[in-house]
């Protein structure tokens, strides 16, 4: 299936990389800035879910935000 080819290629590349001795180019001792709390994707999950819920009940778009909500918010 043509649509599947890019995924198959990407998968093979990743599998090859996974079987090699890939060395991390950012060493663990170089990750102090990345470990800072301000670099977290979502510091407050409940708050992020609440804002997602508000948006999903007023917009047609949904998903791919990294958090989930519930309910319909129909009114």
């Amino acid at each position: 299936m043509p649509a599947f080819r890019p995924l198959a290629v990407a998968g093979l590349v990743l599998m090859t990389a996974a079987c090699s001795n890939l060395q991390p180019w950012v060493k663990p001792y170089e990750r102090d800035k990345l470990a800072d709390p301000i670099m977290g994707w979502d510091r407050d999950a409940i708050s992020a879910q609440y804002l997602d819920h508000i948006r999903e009940t007023r917009e047609a778009s949904r998903g791919a935000t990294g958090s989930a909500g519930g309910g319909c918010g129909c009114n």
Binding site: L34, D36, W41, A60, R62, G63, A64, T65
Partner: peptide
Amino acid sequence: TSTAIQGEAKYFLPYRAAVTGSFRYFRD
């Protein structure tokens, strides 16, 4: 059926602060 893809990046500035940018594309 809906499909959404989001790309995001977070950068630690030269001083202690971070900036985050993201873009999401949705279609159904």
